[in-house]
């Protein structure tokens, strides 16, 4: 229960933030950190808890983003109604990818590559089809009212992304404490033994990818509302997939707070390098890559793991 209280206190504190801080820069930083946390939470459910490393989570993100944007642009549907629709679409793509790859027993590197290939197929399709606006992308019509999921200030967006992140936290907490979560981690640690004990590994993994993809699609729908624009590269490009996996790896795989720790650390690092080296293209991703190699080499259990180790050493 301690974890649950910590989650609620943390989210409560962030919810009070707009009352004290009016700086758009600070609020934007908090929003982007929570947004990165959400993507990380989505990836962490499948990879951290389920052991299935996806390199193509952009497939779910982009589907959520396009589902929401296309519905608004082509059919004039209210953006709030688009959000659940986007989640369902993303989850459906997750079910498709998962059903195909898990049915044929793809594991490890093969699963990573096949998810990447799916994301690329979606990117090329979005680039060539009229419905998604082709290479030009889709511009969401400007409405500037809370009823249309477009807020005047940053505070509104902060509450929305906070609610989504809270959902991600609760899902992670549930995985730590439920029977289903135990099945999922059993499949991660040893699929054959789990199956021998009667766990339906295929079903468990499929459910995990559906949850993960739905959460990722929510991130995509939020992205569209916040930036009001989406194109094939932003939606399905490798940058989103990398952002989703980097946070949990830096923060600690398969933990409740890992994605948040990682996202915050990376945002901090990003701001730091921007101050030191300016806004030169490529610098931040170059450093992210170096961080990824360093984390895998020296801290495979992430910052969270380091804290735990230090806490265990302290008398």
């Amino acid at each position: 229960m301690k974890t649950l209280y910590a989650i609620l206190v943390l989210c409560g504190a962030v919810a009070l933030l707009p009352a004290f801080v009016s700086s758009g820069v600070v609020l934007n930083l908090v929003i982007m950190t929570l947004y990165a946390t959400l993507l990380g939470q989505a990836w962490n459910i499948l990879a951290g808890f389920g052991g299935q490393y996806s390199f193509g989570h952009a497939a779910f993100f982009g589907t959520g983003a396009y589902a929401s944007a296309a519905l608004q642009v082509h059919f004039g549907v209210n953006a709030w109604l688009c959000l659940p629709f986007a989640i369902v679409c993303g989850a459906a793509v997750g079910a498709l990818v998962g059903a195909l790859s898990f049915r044929y027993g793809l594991r490890g590197s093969y699963f990573a590559l096949v998810t990447l290939a799916f994301a690329e197929v979606f990117r090329i399709l979005a680039n060539s089809v009229k419905f998604t606006g082709g290479g030009v992308g889709l511009l969401v019509p400007l409405k500037s009212s809370a009823l249309d999921f477009q807020f005047q200030g940053k505070a509104g967006f902060l509450y929305v992304i906070l609610a989504l992140t809270l959902a991600g936290f609760l899902l992670s907490w549930w995985l730590k404490h439920s029977r289903y979560g135990a099945w999922l981690t059993a499949v991660r640690d040893n699929e054959d033994s789990a199956a021998a004990l009667g766990v339906d590994a295929f079903r468990v993994k499929l459910q995990a990818i559906v949850i993960s993809a739905g959460l990722m699609a929510a991130g995509g729908a939020f992205y569209v509302q916040y930036f009001q624009y989406i194109d094939p590269h932003l939606a399905y490009g490798p940058a989103v997939s990398v952002e989703a996996l980097l946070g949990p790896i830096v923060g600690g795989l398969g933990t409740v707070f890992g994605p948040l720790l990682g996202a915050a650390a990376l945002k901090l690092l990003g701001e730091l390098t921007r101050n030191l080296m300016g806004d030169a293209p490529g610098v931040s991703l170059m450093i992210y890559g170096a961080v990824l190699i360093a984390m895998v080499t020296f801290l495979p259990r992430g910052i969270g793991g380091l804290f735990q180790r230090l806490a265990a050493k302290a008398p």
């Binding site: 490393y53 390199f55 490890g108 590197s109 990573a112 990398v242 996996l245 790896i249 293209p281 490529g282 610098v283 991703l285 170059m286 992210y288 890559g289 170096a290 961080v291 990824l292 190699i293 895998v296 080499t297």
Partner: peptide, 14 residues
């Protein structure tokens, strides 16, 4: 896989 992904990011963005 993750290390070579990191290497890709470093090289491409360098």
């Amino acid at each position: 896989l993750l290390a070579t992904l990191g290497l890709t990011l470093v090289l491409e963005n360098f």
